[in-house]
Design a protein around this nucleic acid. Structure first.
Lengths: 175, 175
DNA sequence: CGCGAGTAAGACTGGTCTGTCTCCCTTCAG
DNA sequence: CTGAAGGGAGACAGACCAGTCTTACTCGCG
């Protein structure tokens, strides 16, 4: 409920009143469960990490490839399918970070979840036996985030483009 | 005035009342010049294109390199200097696009200005005699946008990383 | 039965937002 | 000198915001 509204329209555009009304819960009940709207947004970000990062991107990518290298590249296959969906809503972590700024607690939380994504990439890179996996995952993440922004602009081929550069990146981290 | 506030804190976070008060102009006067806040934001985006895209990124990059290829790569040298500035405020076009969505007029305008940036890259690629410059500029733009988001997260080395991948991209578009 | 916990509904507070309107002063042209 | 135009200051409207609180109702448990 709140997840769909927040991920589709952004955390700033959806007010507490609307959430209350749509979920059929009373306002006092809401504030008994969450001390503030920000704490609900924090819960949303945690749910986003679980549903999107872990259960969609990472697990899908692991399913689509047999070797760790294939699984890494498969991330952009998953992105390719995701970018053409009509309910494509970009990355909530990037959205919240840019909307609230890195100093805001919600921006900080977004930075942490983005670092977690980078951790998944780094783990796959380790499994693939690549060199300098910290640098690798940071470069890889640039491709992921850049392609997401390009997809927001309407470039549905952004995933393929990023995947090509990702292939070169893997090559340069083999030795 | 409005330019600094909008670019630093985002167009949604800065209200008309604050702009009025800081600029010492009367509210009626403001609304005589601009029919709505959105039209002021449109003017801001145009100014951002002029001051930042054209007069900072493009002209700086052209100054720092002698050949078109060097000038392309110099974009990320300019980014590197920009990322470490304490008043680094990311890319207003990306911010507005993600904040308002691609359907909103301001989101559309941001998409147009981002396409303009891609046009500058494509022109440099033409000068450098690269192949498939449309694809090239779209891939290049992924690196630009990805590194900006990474810089927002605090990765000050994002420009160097993007520049390395940009070098590989140039190589693959030579023939 | 009786009581307390939880909840729906929604009024309310104090603040914000965009945008309109009034009042009054200054400036400048004829 | 006079009158029109424009701008500063700010009240105001109407809508929204997050968050608090009151009222009335419905449960489950002893």
């Amino acid at each position: 409920m709140a997840y769909d509204l927040f991920s589709r329209r952004g955390v700033r555009d959806v007010g507490v009143n609307e959430l209350i009304e749509r979920s059929g819960v009373a306002k006092a009940t809401f504030y008994r469960h969450f001390p503030s709207k920000d704490s609900l947004v924090l819960a949303f970000l945690a749910q986003r990490d679980q549903l999107w990062t872990i259960e969609t991107i990472v697990s899908q990518a692991r399913l689509r490839g047999t070797t760790p290298t294939e699984q890494l590249l498969a991330i952009f296959d998953v992105f390719g399918d995701w970018f053409v969906r009509d309910d494509f809503e970009a990355c909530s972590f990037i959205n919240v970070l840019l909307e609230m700024g890195p100093a805001h607690p919600l921006g900080q939380a977004s930075i942490d979840y983005l670092a977690k994504i980078r951790g998944h990439v780094q783990a796959l890179a380790e499994e693939a036996g690549l060199q300098r996996t910290e640098d690798f995952s940071r470069s890889w993440h640039i491709l992921m985030k850049g392609s997401i922004v390009s997809a927001s602009e309407g470039d549905t081929g952004a995933a393929k483009r990023a995947q090509q550069m990702a292939g070169w990146l893997i090559e340069h981290h083999r030795s």
